[in-house]
Deep mutational scan, measured.
Amino acid sequence: KITVTFNGEEKARRYYKKMQKHNLKVEIRVENNQWVVHVE
């Protein structure tokens, strides 16, 4: 499981979509004013 933190929504969403293309289970959320993407 990987957790990647971004300081911008745009970058986070781009990464999220990229990971989805690989058929990975991805989850995006905001934690402590940071955009966090969890990849299983």
Rank of each mutant, 00 (worst) to 15 (best):
K1L: 11
K1R: 12
K1D: 08
K1W: 15
I2F: 15
I2Q: 07
I2H: 12
I2W: 15
I2S: 06
I2M: 10
T3R: 08
T3Y: 06
T3H: 05
T3V: 11
T3Q: 06
V4Y: 10
V4H: 06
V4G: 02
T5W: 13
T5K: 12
T5D: 02
T5N: 06
F6A: 01
F6M: 02
F6E: 01
N7F: 09
N7L: 09
N7K: 11
G8S: 15
G8K: 15
G8Y: 12
E9F: 13
E9R: 08
E9A: 08
E9H: 05
E10V: 09
E10N: 09
E10G: 08
K11C: 14
K11M: 15
K11A: 15
K11L: 14
A12Q: 02
A12N: 02
A12P: 02
A12L: 03
R13S: 04
R13W: 14
R13H: 08
R13K: 11
R13V: 10
R14A: 15
R14D: 15
R14G: 05
R14T: 10
R14L: 13
Y15V: 02
Y15K: 02
Y15F: 15
Y16M: 14
Y16A: 15
Y16F: 12
Y16S: 04
K17Y: 11
K17T: 10
K17Q: 13
K17S: 09
K17R: 11
K17H: 13
K18M: 14
K18Y: 14
K18V: 09
K18C: 13
K18G: 04
K18W: 15
M19A: 07
M19Y: 03
M19I: 05
M19T: 02
Q20N: 05
Q20A: 09
K21D: 12
K21S: 13
H22Y: 13
H22S: 09
H22E: 10
H22I: 10
N23A: 10
N23E: 05
N23R: 05
L24C: 06
L24T: 05
L24A: 07
L24N: 06
L24H: 08
L24V: 12
L24M: 11
L24K: 08
K25S: 10
K25Y: 10
K25W: 09
K25C: 06
V26R: 00
V26E: 00
V26Y: 01
E27G: 03
E27D: 08
E27I: 10
I28V: 04
I28C: 04
R29D: 06
R29C: 08
R29G: 08
R29T: 13
V30C: 11
V30G: 05
V30W: 13
E31D: 06
E31G: 03
E31K: 05
E31A: 05
N32T: 03
N32I: 04
N32K: 07
N33Q: 08
N33M: 07
N33K: 06
N33A: 07
Q34E: 07
Q34I: 13
Q34G: 05
W35N: 00
W35R: 00
W35T: 01
V36P: 00
V36A: 03
V36F: 07
V36M: 05
V37G: 00
H38K: 07
H38Q: 13
H38L: 14
V39D: 00
V39F: 07
E40V: 11
E40K: 06
E40L: 14
E40N: 11
E40G: 11
